[in-house]
């Protein structure tokens, strides 16, 4: 009978528990190891990029890579062929990357920001609950799909449109790739900015509205100035995303290393060249293959710096209102 279960007074034993401490230590060690994977991966990236890049810079001087304006990495089959050494000036790739990213930001910044403002300040709950997920679908669509759409639909459309008004638009124009990439990063900007705008304390809004400002005046004069650092952070993150984007430019921007600022011409990007250099059969120690790693290192360094700055800004901003 349970009622009879007496309280057996156990020894007041508090120095050993009934559990396997060594097992628990193993579990904790395993968890630490898993956390350290993040560090290992970072080190792995830096190490492999650096190592191959150093090999590359043994063959091609760094100054040519950073300041050369001709990119033609074709290495000849025979040593006595014309242009056997290839030219590895990355400037056209950098300018192409910046051009396309700039176009993308020009498209995404106003669209993303205004969407965020509308959703956080004007839209009712119902609209918000429908539109927000729809915008996020844009972020969920694989980039290869954007690339396909850019190459097959947007580029011909721009070309036809250009012809209509007497402009010569290249079939692999920077504009097509940039616009489509811009659409792709809209949700990134809108959702980050939305968070940032929502983090602005209600009291600031109330203060402004209480003084008789209209909604738009409140947004422009009070909320945006307060949210600017956070928004800047999200824009940097979006720019880093645009610079590192690969499939859209591979499929829609082509491989012509033109040094131009004309968005209607074809340009190529760092990422597109990496793909071109490394797909297909390769000799691993040729300058051509190694140059891909130097480009990778450049890309990694630039995006890392942008991400670090952006994270810093956003964290600082969060602290301010926490």
């Amino acid at each position: 009978m349970p009622e009879n279960t007496s309280i057996q007074v156990r020894d007041f034993e508090i120095t050993t528990g009934n559990r396997s401490k060594s097992f628990e230590n193993i579990v904790v060690a395993l968890m630490i190891a898993c956390s350290a994977v993040a560090i290992v991966v970072t080190i792995g990236i830096i190490f492999s990029l650096l190592f191959e890049s150093i090999n590359f810079f043994k063959k091609v001087p760094m100054s040519e890579f950073l300041f050369g304006t001709t990119w033609s990495p074709q290495t000849a089959l025979r040593a006595d062929q014309v242009g056997a050494s290839g030219r590895f000036g990355a400037v056209p790739l950098i300018s192409g990357t910046l051009l396309i990213s700039f176009i993308a930001m020009c498209v995404a910044t106003p669209l993303g920001l205004f969407s965020a403002i509308y959703l956080s300040e004007y839209a009712g709950n119902k609209t918000r609950s429908i539109v927000k997920p729809l915008l996020e679908i844009l972020a969920g669509i694989p980039t290869v799909v954007y690339g396909f759409f850019a190459a097959l639909t947007v580029a011909p459309l721009l070309r036809a449109g250009g012809e209509g008004i007497g402009l010569n638009v290249s079939s692999e124009s920077a504009l097509a790739a940039g616009v489509v990439m811009g659409i792709m990063i809209i949700p990134l900007i809108s959702s980050l900015s939305d968070d940032v705008i929502n983090a602005v304390p209600q009291s600031l809004r109330d203060a402004s509205l209480g003084l008789g400002s209209t909604d738009s005046e409140t947004i422009r004069r009070v909320i945006l100035p307060a949210a600017i650092p956070g928004i800047a952070g999200s824009l940097l993150l979006a720019a880093s995303r645009a610079i590192g984007e690969t499939m859209i430019v591979v499929m829609a921007a082509g491989l012509a290393a033109n040094l131009t600022a004309n968005p209607l011409e074809a340009v190529t990007t760092i990422t597109a060249q990496i793909v071109a250099l490394l797909t297909g059969d390769q000799e691993f120690d040729s300058a051509k293959t190694l140059s891909a790693f130097a480009l990778g290192l450049l890309l990694f360094a630039v995006t890392l710096i942008l991400n670090m700055i952006s994270l810093k800004i956003v964290n600082k901003y969060r602290e301010q209102y926490d």
């Binding site: 990236i45 880093s240 995303r241 990496i274 790693f293 990694f300 995006t303 890392l304 991400n307 670090m308």
Partner: peptide, 13 residues
């Protein structure tokens, strides 16, 4: 930072 590294860099790794 890894969350924001371009995917192609992981390919290089």
């Amino acid at each position: 930072n890894l969350a924001a590294v371009p995917s192609i860099v992981f390919g290089l790794l």
